[in-house]
Amino acid sequence: MPKKIILVEDNVDVCLGYKMLINMTNEYEVVNYYHIGDEALKNLNKDMPDIALVDIDLLWVL
């Protein structure tokens, strides 16, 4: 079973780049990606990732 990963990154290009890189391996799989932190937080229960890759400079969304 590959380790489940979510990406939280507001730069679409970086996000898709990481997704492609990671999904080329057998060990890891990107199960979801988000551009907004709140969305990622809401779906943690559903995604149940082993690892979250989080952009430090995510935009604040109220």
Binding site: G37, D50, I51, A52, L53, V54, D55, I56, L59
Partner: peptide, 21 residues
């Protein structure tokens, strides 16, 4: 932001490992 999100993820699911970009 990512720091706050990290704090909240760890609070809700301490076992999720977080890598900062």
């Amino acid at each position: 932001n990512g720091i706050e999100l990290t704090r909240r993820i760890k609070l809700a699911f301490p076992k999720i490992e977080i890598i900062i970009i």
